[in-house]
């Protein structure tokens, strides 16, 4: 609940950020499932991620918001391809900017990557605007002003605090991710993952499940954020 005149986020920084002189990297770990767990057709598997960060706090104590934690499940045709991807992405220092915007602006409250929530899924959006080169701008405009009647009678609230650039990055991410049939984004540090159906039919997937957390940086200063990730292979 937000109280007028006291807009400080209840869950925000644990420490007095103005006095912060160093920023320690976060620690992230997929606790469940264990490496090598099998994803059976049509069944979900639980996941649980633990994040600790010296400055931001810990998921165990609710100091890090669920929306800050993102997981990606990708499907690969072989163990080698999966391992290569895992190694290749190990040291990525920055998440896609569009994803950062989406996490912080609360878009995940209403949108999922491949599943319908209050709003259409990233996949639905990507399919609908696949052949429309001007889509990015119309979509960005609709995100800023809010919209209704395009997908149904429910209203998407306006996002006047986001800049045009941020929204374009978010929309670009949505269209790209929505189109990626071999990847699925989940968010929240607890939940379930599902096997990727599309791929199972041609060729059994070897999965890489990756979770990451980007911290709030030194004293909240943009550009000083540190990111950590943890990946495991699943069958």
């Amino acid at each position: 609940m937000t109280i007028y005149g006291n807009s400080a986020n209840e869950h925000s920084f644990r420490n007095d950020i103005t006095n912060q002189t160093v920023n320690n990297p976060p620690n992230v770990k997929i606790e469940i499932p264990k490496e090598g767990t099998k994803l059976k057709a049509n069944s979900s598997v639980r996941y649980r991620v633990v994040v600790t960060d010296k400055e931001d706090g810990s998921t165990e104590f609710g100091e890090i918001l669920p929306n800050e934690v993102v997981l990606e499940l990708t499907c690969w045709p072989s163990k080698k391809a999966a391992t290569d991807y895992k190694n290749l992405t190990k040291d990525i220092a920055k998440e896609p900017t569009g994803l950062t915007v989406i996490k912080h602006a609360g878009c995940f409250n209403c949108h999922n990557d491949k599943a319908r929530l209050t709003g259409p899924s990233f996949e639905d959006i990507a399919i609908r605007y696949k052949n429309d080169p001007t889509a990015i701008h119309t979509l960005a405009k609709n995100v800023i002003t809010g919209s209704t009647g395009i997908w149904g009678d429910v209203q998407m609230p306006s996002n006047p605090e986001l800049s045009k650039i941020e929204v374009i990055q978010a929309v670009e991410y949505i269209l790209k991710q929505g189109n990626n049939q071999r990847s699925r984004i989940y968010n929240g540090y607890e939940g379930v993952i599902w096997p990727i159906k599309q791929a199972i039919d041609d060729n059994p997937c070897v999965y890489v499940l990756t979770t990451s957390y980007t911290d709030k940086g030194k004293g909240g200063v943009s550009g000083t954020e540190l990111r950590a990730q943890h990946s495991i292979l699943l069958n």
């Binding site: 069944s43 979900s44 599943a115 319908r116 929530l117 209050t118 429910v154 379930v192």
Partner: peptide, 25 residues
């Protein structure tokens, strides 16, 4: 409820309902 793992999986017909029921917020 979608965020809870159910084992063994529910029937496809039931899962459809669970996956597709939408809410306003």
């Amino acid at each position: 409820f979608r965020r809870i793992a159910v084992e063994p999986a529910l029937t496809e017909d039931k899962q459809f309902v669970i996956d597709n029921l939408t809410y306003g917020t």
